[in-house]
Amino acid sequence: MMASLSRLRLASPEGVGLLLLAAYAAYGLFWLGSIDERDRLFFYEVTLSGLLAGVMYSLVALGFVLIFKSSGIFNFSQGVMALFAGLFLTGFMNDFGVPAFLAIPLTVAVMVAVAFAVERFVLRHLVNQEPIILFMATIGLAFVLEGVGDILWGSDVKPLDVGLPRGASDFLLDGYGLYVEKLEIAAAAVAAVLVVALSLFSQYTRIGRALRAVADDHQAALSVGISLRTIWVIVWSIAGAVALVAGIMWGSKSGVQFSLALIALKALPVLILGGFTSIPGAILGGLIIGVGEKWAEIYLGEVMNALFGLNASWFTAIENWFAYVLALAFLLVRPQGLFGEKIIERV
């Protein structure tokens, strides 16, 4: 990315984008200096909450990236996998009284079994098919996993408590007047650990290097004896474990329930922005989307009213779709996403 920055030309779309961003940042700093202390504190609160919400989105996006990076499959069922893992975890804990420290590895085992089943019954039969076929297969997989989860565990809301802290941080709220959720701080810490662990795994382990080889070139990897099937099982297992982490974080917030599957919709703009093949991109994309949508929800109405005299209430409940607007605007400037690989095809 630094290399591309050094080659940046102001006349290019990226240059224009960067100029707009700089102008926006300058205006933001000027505005921040002009508001009173209470509003400034609120702005910091919004920004911090946006960043932490972004981390929650990134946890879902990470699973997409892992699978796409190693197999070129856009796994539509990633959100449902988070739900599926959450259902098994709460099932083990609430229905069978298994403590969290045992229920979590048991659920990981279930997700590994799912990975084996996906490879055996879906992917193995679709080798060399078009990406759209594989994508459609993951849509089918989403429905299967949702249906199986419903049959096994039912559709009611399942409270989840694995011992994660909840509520506002007393330290920040009482000491500095800042409202930050303890659960989201925990999610940020977990996301940081995940990224470091995944990076170390892919850089320094034999399997990790094999994963990278498959990601770079399937055919070349096969020619040096790397088993594609084994790699797929490993990748889907890791994505299953990441889905479990996302399921725990989101499930701790609102209970495990079928709307959890819809969090995948929150991950899509993150992927568009961060790039489909970059783990740091998923994190950074999440942070940008999280902050962007919170700023838009709270401030865009006021800005539009001040600049164009538009009714501020028209710009409420916009955070869901604004995330996509932000991602699409970004696409205009950098189609491959922040860290995505630029594809050049010669004809």
Binding site: A53, W250, S259, L260, I263, E293, E297, I298, E319
Partner: peptide, 21 residues
């Protein structure tokens, strides 16, 4: 004051920050 929440309402941080403000 009116604070809409979009379907399904899994994420409402902005809404409740406004309530807090």
């Amino acid at each position: 004051s009116l604070l809409p929440v979009d379907h399904p309402g899994q994420e409402q941080k902005a809404t409740w920050l406004q309530v807090r403000r």
